[in-house]
Design a protein around this nucleic acid. Sequence first.
DNA 1: AGAGTCATGTAAGCTGTTACATGATTCG
DNA 2: CGAATCATGTAACAGCTTACATGACTCT
Lengths: 192, 192
Amino acid sequence: MALRHAVLAALLDGEYSGYQLAKAFDVGVANFWHALPQQLYAELAKLEKDGLVAGRQVVQETRPNKRLFHVTDAGMAELEQFAAASAKPGFIRDDLLVKVQAADHIGSGPVIDQLDERAAAASAKVELFGNLLRQLRGEMDEDEFLLRGERIGPYLTCLRGLAFEEENRDWCLRIAALLRRRQAVAVEGDGA
Amino acid sequence: MALRHAVLAALLDGEYSGYQLAKAFDVGVANFWHALPQQLYAELAKLEKDGLVAGRQVVQETRPNKRLFHVTDAGMAELEQFAAASAKPGFIRDDLLVKVQAADHIGSGPVIDQLDERAAAASAKVELFGNLLRQLRGEMDEDEFLLRGERIGPYLTCLRGLAFEEENRDWCLRIAALLRRRQAVAVEGDGA
DNA sequence: AGAGTCATGTAAGCTGTTACATGATTCG
DNA sequence: CGAATCATGTAACAGCTTACATGACTCT
């Protein structure tokens, strides 16, 4: 059970519909977990069946009706139990790393392009996370907020996401530049 | 197909048995992908059936016989095609982040312990990766090696792994310290 | 008029994890 | 003499991704 607890943790911030959760777990944000809408609808159904979340129907006029979910007492207990259990280490698993690993045995051109793309995507996320952090802490400065803020969970995971994307961006740019320089060196070598 | 290409990329460095690959893809190293032994044996069987790798039997006297695999021409073509296809972004997916996200709604004690553990594990990996990098570049200094070294793929992915684990360690230590301070502040508040 | 958003799912297939199974050798 | 290493798998299950399906409303 993996997504299960991520959904419960997300619902701590208030009531959300499947659709709203889907946006939060989407490519754009995904500061502490990632999942597709289908998975979320399925997981919410299971969570409700197990009594860990409860939903209430909200009738809308100009929009389709929706169901807003919140965590039940049983859900809180489940989360607490999860938090106490030992966590397995999280791993990097990234296609782009595989390509870089192979880059000197295959054509590095396409890999360089993808490093550039990824760097741009990472930059965008850095900015996004920066904005999100500013929004979460509001008027307070960071130290003050972290010590006395009421809901710091999302802020902390967002900090991790920010650091991750910054590293990502820097690494991609560095490796792209390097592979380009190596291409140039290889051509020189051919000429001599 | 995900693991598939990771295995092909790993086999670019030479011949490996399933067992040896399993160690490389294990918790300890896993600088660009992670997988369990069972998965690797299964994947190698599939890759061989598809003609992307070929194995040769090595008879040993004091040890069980083993099969060493290498990438075929078809395998290289497959890798090249993979490298050209656009990569989907890699996501963070980590139990510990979920726990931190929920930390201010549940008991933060167990979470703090796990942050400490994770920081220690990350430190160990930082050292491991540092050694690996030194070993890979040998006598050369880094810039020289990166520009003119023959096989830099593993070095580059290891750099990414190193940066990731350093971030991981720093974040865990920072958050653990913070949550402890908040516990102290909360107690003060109760007393007042 | 077409694209995007709101809103919710089903079904099939692929990938990854957990548990189980075996057996000799080497190291402490 | 017990634990770890070498060496290879099978079987069952859980989790994730891709493709498909529907329909009204809003913005450009």
